[in-house]
């Protein structure tokens, strides 16, 4: 199962719809929404926290939070 924590530096993923219940409200409000494109911008020197860019917000989150947010490596196509 892929989460934000399994992205490589510079890689892009898409937050899965199933993650909704696991994303803290605060992160949701900052733009970390299901379906959104998320890029792992930088990993801190000690592998934690992670620096992500989602919906135009540049955020640093801890690995434990990143592990809760599932992603897909390709975009969901809405029909």
């Amino acid at each position: 199962m892929n989460t934000i924590a399994s992205l490589h530096k510079g890689e892009i993923g898409y937050i899965s719809e199933e993650s909704l219940g696991f994303i803290p409200l605060k992160l949701l409000e900052m733009g970390c929404l299901p379906g959104a494109e998320v890029e792992l911008v930088q990993i801190a020197p000690l592998k934690d926290p992670l620096y992500i860019c989602v919906n135009g917000s540049h955020l640093a989150i801890r690995k434990e939070t990143a592990l809760q947010i599932q992603i897909l490596k390709s975009e969901i196509v809405h029909v």
């Binding site: 803290p24 605060k26 992160l27 926290p49 917000s57 955020l59 989150i61 801890r62 939070t65």
Partner: peptide, 9 residues
Amino acid sequence: KSFFVVEMP
């Protein structure tokens, strides 16, 4: 519970 999020402006 520890929660941490920081914006990188």
